[in-house]
Amino acid sequence: MKLGKEDLISLYRKMVRARKMDELTIRGLQEGKVLSFYHSNQGSEALSVGGAAVLKKTDYLWAHHRGHGIGALIGKGLDPKGFIAEHYGKVTGSCKGISGFHMAEPEDGILGAGGTIGYQFPLALGNGLAAKKAGKQQVVLACFGDGGSNRGTLHEAMNLASVWKLPIVWVCDNNGMAQYTPIKDTYPKEDIADLAAGYNMPGIVVDGLDIMAVYEAVYEAVERARKGDGPTLIEAKTARYRSHSEGSPDVSHTQTRSQEEIAELKKRDPVESFKEKLLNQGILTEEMVAAINREAEEEAAAAEKFGVESPPPDPSVIDNLVYR
């Protein structure tokens, strides 16, 4: 898989946009514009953006709770306005302010999002089964966190997906922390990708801070799935800069995570390090970087304005909505 110059710039632009939208959502929560809560994606953009960017419009995508899928939405090429408006509780949101923070864009292969960790395993199994039955070479990218990997639903779904050779790419965003509990305290091995061996599928560990490495690994797994060769498990080692949920304490068990620890994580920031790489290679210039940043800021400002100016939903939007 060789990425062209334009592809690389596009990936960088998407990461910057995802970071800006994440910052906007955090600020929105602090300012009372975001009505629910937020689980920041910062430190994980290379994975959330890079993985989704591999997919075609007709492919399916299950994001997980980090960033409420913002990286995946932008990675797949969607306009983030509906994301912000949904968080603001407005009728112009992805789900008219009803889900509050769960996105659904079925036309683009995003069938919804749920509030239980690990829920996506069995649903992605069924989605993959449908994709295989339909025979249109669609692929399912099913993302989850290291915490989600502890769910029993993982076993049930990965097991059958492998037996049935379904076109599913399982992607684990391993940032090392499940809410306030380090993954090393709930999983007995170093690599979650080792689980793949039990299901007779490839298990790949990738540097989740390097978007090119992520893109290439996901691309290969997606092509494998598209050809009918079955699922792959990819584990990306990422970082979580902020607390599990905005406003909640940033602790490991009960111990506050130190500033030094966070600073250490940020040394290899996925957005900054990709920028440096592209600058060094002469693919980006400082002027281009400034322009990309400015555009991302403008996009965030426009999304904020759109969200603020949109009306809240009339209560009638939920009338007769329980059933189709």
């Binding site: 399916y60 069995p122 649903l123 199994l125 069924g126 449908a130 994709a131 639903t153």
Partner: peptide, 11 residues
């Protein structure tokens, strides 16, 4: 999950 996921995908 397989049934529900497939139902959401048109089956």
């Amino acid at each position: 999950g397989a049934a529900i996921g497939a139902a959401m995908s048109g089956y």
